[in-house]
């Protein structure tokens, strides 16, 4: 049981980080990015190819992060342009359709060129005992990196003027414009950040379990569920929801089975919408 919970925490931290990108992009721009998982997978393939080409792991990982950020930027500059012309419901819907198209395109391409491609970053050395449970070094390293990233994000959003400016657009876009903040610049920045975070999750996930070219859909699904439960536009909510759902997922998968656990997660998301539409930490407006 404790082993399951610890596994759940490792997974949950990564879920949370995935959701941060999705939730911020939605909060800032009213755009729901269904290609989030495929961006993560594509970044993972960049790392795998760079490694295969003989580059050291830190350089390969750096290229992966760069590729993630670049994909966010490309989304902003290309496919999302028509989305930006719309408001409200139509905007969300068009963003869903177009990014779904991107997800198929990316996955199709990867499947065609690198059908057997996968990223696996095993970290050697024996297991480390935590609460009497042997944990693999890969899991611990992945969690440490993820936690450090969360800490950096909190500091950025709370203590830098750029971070506050991003939050202000989520809070009140017109208010932000009236103090001289360009909302679209903030959205572009956050799309790049979300791409980098997706790549980071893919890389750290690969320290725990291999990422293959078909992992995109399940990554997007988890990220969406965590986003809904955590509340749109809420970084702390994403962390909390990621942890809770990660633990729920690990325990349920062990007790009942993997497919059932996904259904349980979807149920949790539906229940959240019904009872707390603004998410776990959300305040009703």
């Amino acid at each position: 049981m404790i082993a399951n919970i610890l596994d759940g925490i490792v997974l949950g931290l990564q879920f949370g980080l995935l959701a941060v990108g999705l939730t911020l992009v939605y909060g800032l721009g009213g755009v729901l990015n269904l290609a989030h998982g495929q961006m993560a997978v594509a970044a993972a393939m960049v790392v795998a190819l760079a490694q295969a080409a003989g580059l050291p792991i830190w350089l390969a990982a750096g290229l992966g992060l760069l590729a993630g950020g670049l994909m966010g930027l490309i989304l902003d500059l290309t496919i999302l342009r028509p989305v930006y012309r719309l408001r409200g419901e139509a905007r969300v819907l068009l963003s869903l359709l177009l990014t779904l198209g991107v997800s198929f395109t990316v996955e199709g391409f990867l499947n065609w060129r690198y059908a057997l491609g996968a990223l696996s970053l095993r970290i050697g050395g024996g297991a480390v005992e935590i609460l009497g449970v042997p944990m693999r070094r890969g899991s611990l390293a992945a969690s440490a990196i993820t936690l450090a990233t969360f800490a950096a994000l909190f500091l950025f959003f709370r203590y830098t003027s750029l971070g506050r400016a991003v939050r202000s657009v989520i809070e009140d876009q017109e208010g932000a414009r009236l103090v001289g903040i360009y909302p679209h610049r903030m959205l572009r920045l956050i799309l790049v950040l979300s791409g980098v975070l997706a790549a980071l999750v893919a890389i750290t996930r690969a320290m725990v379990t291999p990422i293959d070219v078909h992992s995109g859909l399940s990554i997007t699904t988890f990220a969406l569920i965590v986003t809904v439960v955590g509340g749109l536009g809420n970084v702390a909510g994403a962390l909390l929801a990621g942890l809770i759902l990660g633990i729920v997922n690990a325990v349920a998968a062990d007790l009942i089975g993997t497919y059932i656990s996904l259904i349980i997660l979807l149920g949790a998301a539906a229940l959240t919408i019904l009872t707390r539409p603004a998410g776990l930490l959300g305040v009703r407006e």
Binding site: R167, D172, V179
Partner: peptide, 26 residues
């Protein structure tokens, strides 16, 4: 040229201090 709207358009879940600091942005 700074406009103070009748609806105010403050940032409700940010502190008074943060609202003030944002006034000086960038």
């Amino acid at each position: 040229l700074r406009f103070v709207s009748a609806e105010r358009h403050l940032f409700p879940r940010m502190t008074v201090q943060e609202n003030l600091l944002l006034g000086a942005y960038p």
